[in-house]
Amino acid sequence: MAELNVNIGNLPLKNPVMTASGTFGYGIEYADFMDISRLGGIFVKGTTIQPREGNDYPRMAETPSGMLNAVGLQNKGADYFAEHIYPKIKDIDTNMIVNVSGSSIETYVECAEKIAELDRIPAIELNISCPNVKQGGMAFGVTACGAGEVVKAVRKVYPKTLIVKLSPNVTDIAEIAKAVEAEGADSVSLINTMLGMAIDAEKRKPILSTITGGLSGPCVKPIALRMVWQTYQAVKIPIIGLGGISNWKDAVEFMLAGASAIQIGTYNFVDPTVSIKVIDGLNDYCDRHGFKSVKELTGALNI
């Protein structure tokens, strides 16, 4: 048995395997299928200070080895989360991390302040990379200046572990990562979805109500892996890698590229228990290769 525990800043994880925001609900939706407390963490659905209805249907389109989504941050708002959802999830024995989104610096700050009051939420993931909302979201995440500004403002009001989720829809992701590190982020998670599009040739119409949407799933994995590797060269803070992970081998690859922990997203829809299989597979891999701790994998790429 290898040691599987890792740290993201000051936040200890029992293992590096977590589930990505928007793909695992609030965790409880999956409790019938698995022991969710075995996970290193659960990133719950994107939360905004005000409730959001999200985008119109249709919101998804399947693609080869992946899917596009355009949910648009549907959620009932931070107050509803605190009053109705938090009580149901606060005693789950893993790190429950809230993905925080906004449409202006003020709304990011307000939402982070609200979530900071919740004792059993040890970290937030600042979503500056959602491609599916017109205002804010990705607008902050595509320039180093915008990303730095929002992280600086949230850092002032949020004392716990601050993870910043980066957009792949940029020229140089490492530059954005450096900017958020400089403003005090404890960690970066990458990648969010890639902007894509699907068309119904017969109807000559876009499939998604928003025309464009976010691409995820195994099809984006090589891009995500490359971005984790580039970011690893550029920053000292721990990286949480995600993008198309569907088995333990993918998880190992992300860690070798420089990730300290990983998230599993879209593949939860295909196999709700995939994250548990990845935890077991990581352990077997470490044993097989003589690693005493999974931490030794981070950046252990032989070049």
């Binding site: 928007g22 793909t23 695992f24 609900g25 939706e29 999956y30 659905k45 209805e53 999200g54 249907y57 919101r59 998804m60 899917m67 989504n69 949910v71 549907q74 879209t266 939860n268 829809f269 709700p272």
Partner: peptide, 20 residues
């Protein structure tokens, strides 16, 4: 739909209050 479990929020329909 994608997940079938209420997690992905892709398969929405508007209820009588207009909520997805």
């Amino acid at each position: 739909m994608a997940c079938g479990l209420g997690a992905c929020l892709c398969c929405v329909e508007k209820n009588k209050e207009g909520h997805n």
